[in-house]
Simulated scan of single mutants.
Amino acid sequence: MHGNQQKGRNGEAIAVQLLKQRGYEVICLNWRHKHLEIDIIARDGDHLVFVEVKTRLSSNFGMPYEAVDWVKQGRLTRAAERYIQAHRHEGEIRFDVVSVLYSADRKSYRTELIKDAFWPD
């Protein structure tokens, strides 16, 4: 596994821990439909939550959550639509972002959970 892939997988594992600590029930990791992917699909109460995880080794180019731009939001929205169709989900949904920022020595990290990070148009 390449460095960026490993960094991403480590960030996702940290995000799963955070979500479980906050009471989320993790349903699926790395759900794919063709070229679309959702990092984590979970339940938070009666909401089906699509979670994007962004991990960075420094904040030199901004905070990790800032990388969830309108292009990424569009991809997540399309992926969520496919998941909802495939699983015939009816009910409330939400898009959350988990931001993971490692310290300079990479021995610790800071996480941030952003609920309702965005809404599709």
Rank of each mutant, 00 (worst) to 15 (best):
N4Q: 13
N4D: 10
Q5M: 03
Q6E: 12
Q6V: 13
Q6C: 03
G11R: 06
G11C: 07
E12M: 11
E12V: 07
I14Y: 09
A15G: 09
A15P: 08
V16H: 04
Q17M: 00
Q17S: 00
L18Y: 07
L19S: 06
K20C: 02
Q21C: 00
Q21F: 03
R22N: 11
R22Q: 08
G23I: 00
G23W: 03
E25H: 01
I27Q: 09
I27A: 01
I27W: 10
C28D: 15
W31V: 11
W31C: 14
H33V: 07
H33A: 08
K34W: 13
H35E: 15
L36A: 06
L36S: 08
L36R: 01
I40V: 15
I41Y: 15
A42P: 05
A42I: 00
A42T: 01
R43Y: 12
R43D: 06
D44A: 09
G45S: 05
G45M: 05
D46I: 01
H47E: 09
L48S: 06
F50W: 07
F50H: 10
V53R: 09
V53Y: 06
V53H: 11
T55K: 08
R56F: 03
F61V: 00
F61T: 00
M63V: 00
M63C: 00
M63F: 05
P64F: 01
P64E: 07
E66A: 06
V68W: 03
D69H: 07
D69P: 01
G74F: 02
L76S: 08
T77W: 05
R78P: 02
R78H: 08
R78V: 05
A80I: 05
A80M: 09
Y83Q: 09
I84V: 15
I84T: 12
Q85F: 15
Q85H: 15
R88T: 09
E92F: 10
R94F: 06
F95I: 02
V97Y: 10
V97F: 12
S99I: 01
S99L: 02
S99Q: 15
S103D: 14
S103G: 05
A104N: 10
A104H: 11
Y109M: 01
Y109L: 00
Y109P: 00
R110V: 04
T111D: 10
T111M: 12
E112H: 10
I114H: 14
K115C: 09
W119G: 05
W119D: 13
